[in-house]
Design a protein around this nucleic acid. Structure first.
Length: 197
DNA sequence: TAGGCCATCTGGTCCT
DNA sequence: AGGACCAGATGGCCTA
């Protein structure tokens, strides 16, 4: 914003404008704080919560959109997606850093969440054309290890998706969103995956 | 060190 | 007229 040319203003007018600007700055600051409070509130309702680093504003909005999308699909189809499908929907349009975090929390391989992201998580793999999306192939042969994790096997489509909802929280955030840093690190180091891209 | 993210300031515009 | 909202500019902090 280019500074205004105030050389023609009388001292009284200049002072009046200065006071008005200071007051406007204070209101603008308060307005932005309100916006940030609303974003903090939104962060509590979406599936990624880490204590060491909070999601950026843009990633919060993107993930909230994806989360709504995932929940709407569940309501519409009355089906619960596999963790990989769920993670893929949540990761749509997110940065690589957030995608990696999401993949770790849901215990799926980050590289499976890379673009193309136009993957419909509720589409039937068997009804699609012969050119299956790679995710469908991995979906039928999940490369997960269940022995070292304290969590139920997230790749089992039969197991209840208890990581989707937390009965103890007012929000619909998944249980794994409540992981503290220690749990997160333990989970990260206990699995045998190669998370490198 | 470059790039991302953020808070703040600022002037313009719209609304009450 | 004054407040709310918006978007551009700037500088600081942090991380890969």
């Amino acid at each position: 914003m280019r500074p205004m040319d105030t050389s023609n203003f009388a001292p009284a007018e200049l002072n009046k404008r200065k006071i008005r600007r200071v007051k406007a700055n204070g209101r603008e600051r308060a307005r932005m704080h309100g916006l940030n409070d609303a974003l903090d509130n939104l962060r509590e309702y979406i599936p990624i919560t880490t204590q060491h680093q909070k999601l950026s504003k843009i990633e919060t909005l993107r993930l909230a959109r994806n989360y709504i999308d995932a929940l709407q699909r569940m309501l519409r189809t009355n089906e619960q997606p596999t963790p990989l499908q769920y993670a893929h929907t949540l990761a749509n349009g997110l940065s690589q850093t957030t995608t990696n975090m999401l993949a770790n929390l849901l215990q799926v391989q980050p590289r499976l969440l890379l673009p193309p992201s136009q993957f419909d998580m509720f589409s039937d793999p068997t009804s699609s054309s012969s050119t299956q999306h790679p995710l469908h192939l991995h979906h039928s042969h999940p490369q997960q290890h269940s022995s070292s994790s304290s969590f139920s096997s997230p790749t089992s489509s039969c197991s209840p998706p208890q990581y989707y909802y937390s009965p103890n929280q007012p929000s619909a955030a998944p249980l794994q969103a409540s992981l503290d840093l220690a749990q997160y690190q333990q989970m990260y180091h206990s699995n045998e995956y190669n998370f490198s891209q």
